[in-house]
Design a protein around this nucleic acid. Structure first.
Lengths: 194, 194
DNA sequence: ATTGTTTAATTGAACGTTCATTCGGTTGCA
DNA sequence: TGCAACCGAATGAACGTTCAATTAAACAAT
């Protein structure tokens, strides 16, 4: 298509990636635009060519990161498998994404607990909502799960997976398939119809 | 005892309370010392009479808030009850604390996911560690729970309760005993020995 | 009780720094 | 030649922190 599009994306992506890393390391207030620019090898002014403000930069980074999470979760989706198998695949994918992208996980957690999330509740990943949350809804409708509000189910699952991923990461442990399955089993046992 | 002690504490407490509220509302970077001072009805300089820096103010607020959480969790502790009953009491207490102290919950979650927590891992509530975490350890030792590392168990439980409290708070719903028990049941079903 | 003395608490303007953002100018591609 | 991408010094606002000055409290001596 367009060569310029590559340039456009490469600088833009570099800015987003640097923001993710620096926010993870130093928090929102500890990641100034000047440092983000330096880390991304662009001029400070260039950031404002792609983003209106620091605020929109953060919000767009959130959407992009959650899109990536949704894509990772959906990887290897197989309609022919049982609901439980698909659920475990979802959970293991999410767990692995967190392990492999610690900065993404930390950023997402920081964002969710920050004023941003409350100020822009409509700014979110469409893919995540339409595929991942819909899958959980199907689990409730299909009576695999307890009758819980799906908006409660999502954060509950996230909480456990984040806890597990944080633990593994802080211990610098190599994670085996059993480790992951054990954690997912906690989630499943908690929410399944007894 | 000492009249001065009252004054000492009242200003200090006012500063801590204002910080909690403003950090919850605007985040760490959105809560400047000048605003904290104004909200607490003290001069900017007064804050530095009680705290070395903004950083130590935040850290000391974290410890105080987690102490308060620990006290709330331990309320009505009855050694004669069964382990499961005591566990449910712990969980319901924690859930209620979150519901009644939204700013404390939000602050704790923000803190845990911020660089502060990684930079000062030794700065934490002694009460929480010696009573609450010890209780979970006893649950593992006593074979009520799956064989999980207690450092994994804690955040897992927290994740679910925070998710539930956030949900209830965002929906402005009146919480009934059944609501709470339903959530705790999720946690219990997840981690108990099957 | 009163007065003088010392110490602690409190103030808020001032300081130096850092920050997000701007903008006039430059480059490089179409 | 035109236009979007890009630069980076400049700007002004906002920030955390300091400090000289003021007030209040505690204590001691009378």
């Amino acid at each position: 298509m367009n060569v310029q599009l590559n340039n456009f994306n490469s600088k833009r992506e570099a800015i987003l990636n640097s923001t993710l890393l620096l926010v993870k390391e130093y928090g929102f207030h500890g990641a100034p635009m000047s440092q983000i620019a330096k880390h991304a090898n662009v001029a400070a002014g260039t950031i404002y060519h792609y983003f209106d403000s620091k605020e929109t930069l953060i919000v767009e980074l959130y959407i992009r990161t959650k899109d990536q999470l949704a894509e990772a979760i959906l990887e290897g989706y197989d309609e022919s498998k049982s609901y439980k198998d698909r659920f475990f695949r979802f959970m293991i994918n999410q767990y692995n994404f967190y392990i492999k992208n610690e900065s993404a996980m930390v950023f997402l957690e920081q964002y969710i607990n920050s004023p941003f999330a409350k100020n822009f509740p409509e700014k979110d990943s469409v893919l995540f909502k339409e595929k991942v949350i819909a899958f959980f809804q199907a689990g409730i409708d299909g009576e695999y799960f307890k009758k819980i509000d799906p908006r409660l189910l999502g954060p509950t699952i996230r909480g456990t997976l984040v806890a597990a991923a944080n633990f593994r990461l802080s211990e610098h442990m190599i994670y085996s398939e059993e480790d992951i399955t054990e954690v997912v089993q906690i989630v499943w046992d908690g929410i399944k119809r007894q």
